[in-house]
Design a protein around this nucleic acid. Structure first.
Lengths: 141, 141
DNA sequence: TTTACCTTTGACTATGTTTGACTTTTAATA
DNA sequence: TATTAAAAGTCAAACATAGTCAAAGGTAAA
């Protein structure tokens, strides 16, 4: 498969992180852009799309002289934790109040959420709740 | 019997998969369309009708620069157990027909199912579909 | 022959990538 | 302190793919 520039930048950064001691690297945007013969904002794009909290990374940067971009791999504890059922239900309640859902729909959803996630481990459940909220949010827009 | 274009595309892809190491191929839609001198959407059609979960394949794609379509043959483990999305949707359709769900509810459910399970591995997805059907079945009784 | 189900096509849509001009922030220096 | 230079950020346009959908064209079964 032919890889896009963004894919190659992603891979390069991941290798650097893998080789690092602390699971994090500090780079200069311009330097990396030169390595790949591209505009600096290409690097910004690669980082923005490939190193998100969702995918288990956090970033931090500083502009100006001695500027840098730090990319760190999140450990398990730091991983974005999803959503509790309580919060998901509160979200559904808010949709009901905003009349974006009928009472019947609200009840059905809660029933489904409770009964279809019985056998799923807690952390995966929270991920699912989160995805569920996003999908619901999307649907009611 | 004369083979349709779709049949020939299907066969071609199957040969490529058979020859591959990982039982999967990555193609570019346009490239394949050129190979068969047809419109790109013909390739989409061939893939959509011949490489389904039902027939033991899964697909994944990306648009934009250096876009691709990946077609993988599912192994036995991935095939076993649970419920396909197609079957779950058929079940939902039957509830609609039986007037146990409104058209609006049917659409909402399908949207949620599609969009909240995007990042879940196939086997877990099928378990979830199964649980979802049970919960729905229960709810509409 | 009619009907029902594929298949083929293409116009339109959605999404992901690359680029560059312009903006903002920060450190160094006058 | 004010100015300047050196970073990084933002955003929208241009481009490169893939997806969708409905109309038109075939084909086989009844």
């Amino acid at each position: 498969m032919k890889k896009s520039l963004t894919d190659r930048i992603e891979q390069y950064i991941k290798v650097l992180i893998a080789r690092s001691e602390e699971n994090q690297i500090i780079i200069q945007r311009m330097e990396l852009a030169e390595t790949f013969c591209c505009v600096p904002s290409q690097v910004t794009y690669a980082i923005a799309t490939r190193f998100t909290e969702q995918t288990g990374y956090s970033t931090e940067s500083r502009r100006g002289g001695k500027g840098y971009i730090r990319i760190s791999m999140l450990d398990d504890e730091q991983m974005a934790g999803g959503l509790s059922r309580r919060d998901l239900f509160m979200f559904i309640d808010s949709l009901l109040e905003a009349k974006l859902l009928s009472k019947n729909e609200e009840e059905m959803l809660k029933h489904l959420i409770i009964n279809s996630t019985r056998q799923i481990p807690t952390d995966q459940k929270k991920q699912l709740y989160e995805a569920f909220r996003c999908a619901l949010d999307d649907y009611t827009k």
